[in-house]
Design a protein around this nucleic acid. Structure first.
Lengths: 107, 107
DNA sequence: ACAATAGGCAACCATTCACTTGCGTATCAA
DNA sequence: TTGATACGCAAGTGAATGGTTGCCTATTGT
């Protein structure tokens, strides 16, 4: 089972590489099911991010491609919901059978 | 406690954004304490990565800056060891208090 | 019907990034 | 000492990335 090593993992890690996208995930964690404008407002108000609507839209598209965000349309509104499932693969890739702390200095 | 939201997290996620660096982490997971040339050989042999020594060195520098790799010199050899500690922050950031599966379709 | 709202598409620009190339330094073996 | 090994530093290059601007479509309210 090496599914997480392919292009899917690439999309996932690339999506997480940007601080703005991580902040969007934070916002969706706090309140899932927000519209584009709602996310824009929160980024501007709470995080002082002077960013255009289109920029946020592109970020959301990347997050959706990575499977971290799922969308649902209702009329002219499009709601964005967080999906944390892909995140579970990350830790499992390198934390396999290693529940101990970091063994730095040889004791 | 928002330490994982700062520049440290930025280094961490940027380090994980590259597939070659993730492969290096895989190799160090399999055998920790490899030298630069050893890593180069493995990338070339096992993963068919036609990449220069300097490129690998730069990747290792990034991984070290992210705290994922720690080094130790012995003579002219420099051994690279994996440190999985920073990875634990990732899951904790968005998987907080959500141990259930992904609730996609409402059942 | 008409205007306002919510969002999408595409081109362009500036920066960053991965990688190479070339040279330099330190350690070890002969 | 001489040469080979292991690694570091720095500049340059091409591609990818984040962001903006401009225009377009669809839905909603009056």
């Amino acid at each position: 089972m090496v599914a997480y090593c392919g292009a899917v993992a690439d999309d996932l890690f690339k999506a997480l590489a940007d601080p703005t996208r991580r902040t969007i995930l934070d916002e969706l964690t706090e309140k899932s099911g927000q519209t584009l404008f709602e996310i824009c407002s929160r980024l501007s108000m709470k995080h002082q991010l002077g960013i255009s609507r289109q920029a946020v839209s592109q970020h959301l598209a990347l997050l959706e491609a990575a499977g971290l965000v799922e969308t649902r349309r209702e009329g002219r509104y499009k709601f964005h919901e967080l999906n944390t499932a892909p995140l579970r693969q990350i830790a499992e890739r390198w934390l396999v059978a290693d529940t101990s702390g970091p063994e730095k200095g040889t004791p």
